[in-house]
Amino acid sequence: MHEVSIIQSLMDQVERYAAEYAMTKVSRVVIRVGDQTGVCKDSLQFAFSAISQGTLVEGAEFVIEHTPGRELDLQTIEGEQEESVGEN
């Protein structure tokens, strides 16, 4: 159940960074989840697709990397930038 609030926090974070870098679309989000967190990966996937709908993250590839500890980290995001900002 708390996977939904984890994804909610993740989405806030992703949107903040996307805005900071003037991204118009996020195409890939990579997170790391430790085995000792007790977080269900399938529920994360489900919550991600549900909560990202209607945002600039919708349709993005969601990659969950496994680690042995208690990590719960946003690693990287990839996306397209506004043309005026990019190219440098």
């Binding site: 870098y21 991204m23 946003l74 996306g79």
Partner: peptide, 8 residues
């Protein structure tokens, strides 16, 4: 573009 974030 790719952004490295590495944040909880």
């Amino acid at each position: 573009m790719k952004i490295d974030i590495n944040q909880r």
